[in-house]
């Protein structure tokens, strides 16, 4: 049996007295979409922060392809093939759309290109064009990110995370604040990613979660409440009382 592409074991962290993540374990299957759901403050983003090295974990392990990457910094995790996007758009706002992507794609170039003119980075520049096309941002390529609409910024947030060709992509509420049309487009895009990337997604839109996910993980008060197929999770009585219940 091959190791799961991403596995977390007993992850924990506390902020003050609050156990924001409490002994969470799960494994993520390769080239599938696994979605983390849960009410506001359940600890979903904190879970991503621990996995991506943004916040050091107090306990537990993070394994990528069976190798221990616990406590590694975000840049080392990126090198191991793990990239993430942010719930609150986190881009280079004063730089252009294309430059944001180029910065993220530059990692595909060998080190020796670092001291050549940027125009010589053909691999990175080709990747930029490809992503602009795929995320429908070609016409905005020369625009500063600060001038984009909210929906466009959210799309770029995902594109930047994807630019370095990660094998594991963590997306924190990519559709947050998007219009219905944009949300549907983004869902379609995420689905298409899963042919060659393992996606771990945080999403609030239940319809989208049901249609998109292979596996759903339910978080509640820092704990993993349930894990299973969308149907199984929807039918779980604990989940219904904790999450769907109050609807």
């Amino acid at each position: 049996m091959t190791a799961p592409v991403l596995e977390v074991r007993g992850l924990s962290v506390s902020f003050g007295g609050l156990r924001a993540i409490d002994n969470v374990s799960f494994a993520v299957a390769r080239n599938r979409v696994t979605t983390v759901i849960g009410p506001n403050g359940a600890g979903k983003s904190t879970l991503f922060n621990l996995i991506s090295g943004a916040v050091p974990a107090a306990g537990g392990k993070v394994l990528i392809d069976g190798t221990d990457h616990t406590g590694h910094t975000p840049n080392h995790l990126q090198a191991a093939g793990l990239a993430r996007s942010f719930q609150i758009t986190n881009l280079f706002f004063e730089l252009t759309v294309a430059e944001n992507l180029r910065l993220a794609a530059q990692i595909l170039e060998p080190m020796r290109m670092a001291l050549r003119p940027v125009t010589a980075s053909r691999v990175a520049l080709a990747r930029v064009d490809e992503l602009l096309e795929r995320f429908d941002l070609t016409e905005k390529r020369a625009m500063p990110v600060s001038k984009l609409s909210h929906g466009e910024q959210r799309r770029l947030e995902v594109a930047v995370a994807l630019a370095g060709k990660p094998k594991i992509l963590l997306l924190d509420e990519p559709t947050q604040g998007m219009s219905h049309g944009d949300t549907a487009d983004t869902a379609h895009l995420i689905k298409s990613l899963a042919s060659d990337v393992t996606v771990l997604l945080i999403e609030h839109d239940i319809g989208l979660v049901m249609s998109l996910s292979d596996t759903v993980i339910v978080m509640h008060q820092g704990r993993k409440l349930a894990e299973g197929t969308p149907e199984a999770v929807r039918g779980n009585p604990d989940v219904q009382s904790a999450y769907f219940g109050h609807a």
Partner: peptide, 13 residues
Amino acid sequence: KANERRVPFLGYD
């Protein structure tokens, strides 16, 4: 200069 906090997530020290 533009956003130091995002840089590590692009894979750079």
